[in-house]
Design a protein around this nucleic acid. Structure first.
Lengths: 209, 209
DNA sequence: CGTATTTTAGGCCAAATGTACTAATTTATT
DNA sequence: AATAAATTAGTACATTTGGCCTAAAATACG
């Protein structure tokens, strides 16, 4: 039997994902759990507190993935972190889908999100540098092109869920599809050796080319 | 002096963009205009009617752009339709930003949106075919890669506004930045001739490489 | 066992919203 | 000018929501 606080936050996540943050009230979450709204407010003072707590969870997941991948070689690391990252993000998809609502209601979170984005930007820069050193990524492309590549990555990883929401299929298929789209952003810039490794990783992760 | 119906729909668009669909009530729109909410309801029976009407406007703009570009050569056509399309989309950005809310509240619109996406998919396929014929796009890349390219395009054009919303700058800079990101998806697949034309078009549209 | 603390429930209030209905006012038409 | 139609305003109501306060119940602890 889980304690009330955990049950609340899980139900909140489920309802946010299902109905959108704007359409879920604190009272509704309580109603669904069969507890009083006062009880819920005892643990989380309002909806923003729930969102902030879920954001912390998400952050922890992200750090876990980062730690796990850190010592992998860059290209496999890219595959793993992308796929695993997308899985996690899917479980917290309301975040991306209701970004506008959340940012408007919670300025503090906005600052945090920007902080995280900066880190992510750095991480991708590192990975690209590693791959270039390892003759996996072409050196010939000038620095500015990789800036564009990184921005493309950012847009897709920020926003794939919005696009996915229009064409809803199964979670598994969705995650795979959009992870593939992101990974393939790199493909044109790979060396021949890089392309070969890329292809074998696709096989390994059951991605059709 | 514009008539009431037009004034209403313009104010609705402005407020939807500013505060998000979920946070704008019919009464608020009326209040902002200094008319009674009953008067507004006389023209649009509810919020969904406003949204549907705005969607029609957006569609008309899209068709206009398509018509305008139809007879252009493919690469300049790509530049124009992307940039102009992004400008229009920015004016109706609540649509993409509040997609989740809108789709949940309005099933009919969902079907329409899917219809439009299909058309867009076709249009890009045509453009790619034209460019390949004109030795602007590489033939060597197999068909499936272009499928991925098209999907990448779709994600970015569906969802760039979500990403842009996190890092808000000026509208002009935003539009340019994300249009650039989309256009550069093509770059790696261009022939040498294609790359040359691409670069000169970047000059023309004041896009830094 | 008795007391303090934590947890849960319930009620109350003010504000906002969608919806429906009626009345007033303006405009068009003959 | 008289009448019909279109437009605008006003009102009333049921619901929902967030926030606040108080009391009951459960649990921990000395």
């Amino acid at each position: 039997m889980k304690n009330t606080k955990e049950v609340i936050i899980e139900k909140a996540r489920a309802l946010f994902n299902k109905n959108g943050v704007a359409n879920v009230s604190v009272r509704e979450i309580a109603r669904e759990l069969g507890i009083s709204h006062s009880n819920l407010l005892y643990y989380y003072e309002n909806k923003n507190a729930l969102i902030a707590s879920l954001h912390n969870q998400l952050l922890k997941h992200a750090v876990d993935i980062y730690q796990h991948v850190k010592n992998e070689p860059p290209l496999p690391g890219l595959f793993i972190s992308t796929i695993e990252g997308f899985k996690v993000l899917y479980e917290y998809r309301f975040f991306m889908l209701d970004m506008v609502w959340i940012l408007r209601e919670n300025k503090k979170l906005h600052a945090e999100i920007l902080e995280i984005e900066k880190l992510r930007f750095k991480m991708y820069e590192e990975k690209i540098e590693q791959m270039a050193s390892g003759e996996i990524l072409l050196r010939s492309v000038d620095r500015s092109n990789y800036a564009i590549l990184i921005d493309q990555i950012r847009v897709i990883s920020d926003a794939w869920l919005t696009s996915a929401h229009i064409y809803s299929t199964t979670p598994k298929a969705t995650i795979k599809k959009y992870a593939t789209l992101l990974l393939f952003l790199f493909y044109p810039y790979l060396t021949d050796r890089g392309k070969q490794e890329f292809k074998s990783l696709c096989m390994k992760f059951d991605i059709k080319i």
